[in-house]
């Protein structure tokens, strides 16, 4: 509001600004042009063509959308996708929050060691990691053998080719995307706020609940949205570690197009996924700005 009034009060600035601003915009445009053209040709055009097929294949109309929102198989896969993504998000939050907390409150050495541990799996391909889980989690795999040997179980557990396998695999892959936004926000929380709370009479649990937790919320929101969005489009992990009832939307798209040649249905599913993701990304953008407001001033 102050800015608008300022501009209205000084028309001469407004008269001067367009020239210099215009020149600057021209320069900026020239700089982003190559990358924009590249994206346009290799991404926007083919994706646009694909999305167009959702209303043009096999005939023009919205019948593809009608199909996916009416037939139980498609609805069940959409529900699966949301439930699995939500569960993975919750699990990564429950595991990631204490981890990020220890990391943010630890010594610089602890911080580096813990960041390293989270990052190491990043350097291995998802495919390799997923097959590794397959080996570990199968009926005669290391996990079951160990549990049997220790006497905790007598029959091997079904840890793979079902929902549990999907959760384990996806959680491991996505944990860093929860830990790092949390750590980024937590490590910027001013220690003097925690000292102040303690000085004012708050025992450690109250310091955490009343001060640390609310100040870390922007990180929680960023991490939750990031992991949820990434989960929505997951393909390899659920395909290899899940069972027939754990099919997610990305697998369905692949199946429709790759195996049945159903370009229309596949494109419609892709459009639904894209719109859902864009909406969540917009939400994420809003909350990351909120983080800046909280962190900016004290």
């Amino acid at each position: 509001m102050a800015t608008t009034r300022q501009l209205a009060d000084q028309p001469e600035v407004g008269a001067l600004a367009p020239t210099s601003l215009g020149r600057m915009r021209l320069g900026t445009t020239a700089l982003v042009l190559p990358a924009s053209l590249f994206l346009l040709i290799t991404f926007v055009y083919p994706v646009g063509l694909l999305l167009l097929r959702s209303v043009s294949f096999p005939t023009w109309g919205i019948e593809n959308y009608a199909t996916i929102f009416q037939e139980t198989i498609y609805l069940r896969v959409l529900a699966n996708t949301v439930v699995i993504s939500g569960a993975v998000t919750l699990i990564t939050l429950l595991l990631g929050y204490p981890y990020a907390y220890l990391m943010a409150t630890g010594s610089p050495l602890t911080q580096r060691a813990m960041a390293f541990v989270v990052l190491v799996p990043f350097w291995t391909s998802i495919l390799v990691r997923t097959y590794a889980w397959l080996v570990l989690l199968q009926r005669r795999g290391l996990v079951n053998r160990t549990l049997e040997w220790s006497g905790l179980i007598t029959e091997p557990l079904d840890l793979v080719h079902n929902r549990i396998g999907v959760y384990i695999g996806m959680t491991q892959v996505l944990l860093p995307f929860m830990v790092f936004p949390l750590f980024a926000v937590m490590s910027r929380i001013d220690r003097s706020h925690l000292q102040a709370a303690s000085n004012l009479g708050a025992p450690p649990t109250q310091v955490f609940i009343r001060v640390f937790l609310p100040l870390s919320l922007p990180g929680v929101i960023a991490g939750v949205l990031l992991v949820f969005i990434l989960s929505l489009g997951y393909y390899i992990t659920p395909a290899l570690l899940g069972g027939p009832r754990d099919i997610m939307i990305a697998q369905l798209i692949q199946e429709q197009i790759g195996e049945f040649g159903e370009w229309g249905i596949g494109a419609a599913l892709a459009t639904v996924l894209l719109i859902g993701t864009v909406l969540l990304a917009a939400l994420l953008n809003r909350f990351i700005k909120l983080d800046r407001i909280w962190g900016g001033q004290t």
Binding site: S192, H193, A197, S198, N199, Q297, T298
Partner: peptide, 20 residues
């Protein structure tokens, strides 16, 4: 004695007011 049991008031260098 831990800080929260000392019953001492303190004004911090950068105030440390809770932003939320």
């Amino acid at each position: 004695l831990p800080p929260h049991k000392r019953d001492i008031g303190m004004v911090f260098q950068h105030y440390a007011l809770f932003p939320h």
